[in-house]
């Protein structure tokens, strides 16, 4: 198991640094492009949600990203000390309704739920911890892609 732990501040400008570190880590670990893409998507949706909605005091806050690979997939943990937000129970309006509204609110949660195999939330010590698991894409076995 390999681990990436990264702390960023609650600024959108930090997303680039996070993105580069995550991409390099997944590449170094030999994670397939398909799985890596879904991991990047989930991480970005989770972290952007924290940056945009978790804080309203205008102060700097730390967001911890922990990513771990295993033979079956990639485990993601995002921790912040912002407002309570549980994406496992957050309202996600029907996708068609969201899209027709022309707004993206709730779309990120919907994407995360669709892309992850597991999504868990806990709040302890006034911190949100969201854990998501992205399973490896199934590769065609011998004889299946003839």
């Amino acid at each position: 198991m390999a681990i990436l732990r990264l702390t960023i501040s609650n600024q959108l400008a930090e997303l680039r640094r996070m993105g580069f570190a995550l991409a390099e880590f997944l590449d170094d670990e030999g994670v397939s492009k398909s799985t890596a893409h879904r991991v990047k998507l989930v991480v970005e949706e989770l972290v952007v949600n924290v940056i945009q909605h978790a804080f309203d005091d205008g102060a700097p806050h730390a967001i911890l990203l922990d990513v771990r690979t295993d033979p079956q997939g990639v485990a993601i943990m995002v921790e912040d000390d912002g407002k309570r937000f549980d994406p496992t129970i957050a309202a996600a309006p029907p996708l068609k309704e969201l899209l027709e509204s022309g707004k993206s609110g709730g779309l990120g949660v919907a994407i995360i739920r669709k892309v992850t195999r597991e999504l868990k939330y806990e709040r302890t010590d006034n911190k949100n911890r969201v854990r998501a698991y992205v399973e490896n894409a199934i590769r065609p076995g011998p004889g299946r892609n003839k």
Partner: peptide
């Protein structure tokens, strides 16, 4: 190469308009 929910929201906002 890459699109997130905010990008999808931009497309749908314009499509709706």
């Amino acid at each position: 190469d890459f699109i997130t929910s905010l990008g999808i929201g931009m497309l749908f906002g314009c499509a709706k308009s």
